[in-house]
């Protein structure tokens, strides 16, 4: 899809999703991202999803809302969502909103992948 806001790859039964945009702020963009990830979740029985925040400098509460919706959908299908590579300033947003308690957040992609592998073995 040429207008995709995401880079998607499949590694060891885990779907890795990387944001192309540095800022995930506006409603239209967030809706497009949310729809695209929801499509991935719907195609899988127990989605193993890893979202890579490496490129992200800013996000809004609407983006947090989209992540929560994604997390809810993954949980409904007995899957697992993990987040990684979150910039310290953005991680603080997760802490302030206490969403660090809701999401499984890992420092690096490797850390997250190890947790996926540990859970599946």
């Amino acid at each position: 899809m040429s207008d995709s806001r995401l880079r998607i790859s499949n590694i060891d039964h885990v779907t890795q999703v990387e944001f192309i945009d540095r800022n995930i702020l506006d409603e239209a963009n967030i809706q497009a991202i949310s729809d695209e990830i929801s499509g991935i979740i719907e195609q899988s029985d127990a989605p193993q999803l890893l979202i890579n925040f490496a490129n992200v400098d800013h996000l809004s509460s609407a983006a947090l809302g989209a992540l929560i919706t994604i997390n809810n959908k993954v949980n409904e299908k007995d899957g697992k969502l993990r987040l990684a590579n979150i910039d310290p300033q953005i991680f603080e947003v997760f802490v302030i909103t206490r969403l660090n308690k809701l999401f499984s957040i890992h420092e690096t992609l490797n850390d997250a992948m190890q947790e996926f592998n540990a859970a599946s073995s």
Binding site: S61, L64, G65, I68, T69, N72, I96, T97, R98
Partner: peptide, 21 residues
């Protein structure tokens, strides 16, 4: 309050608290 346990998985209602924070 969006940080209450019962509101944590609701996908809205964080803008006002972030502005204040």
């Amino acid at each position: 309050d969006p940080t209450l346990m019962e509101n944590l998985s609701k996908p809205f209602g964080r803008g006002v608290m972030l502005m204040k924070a």
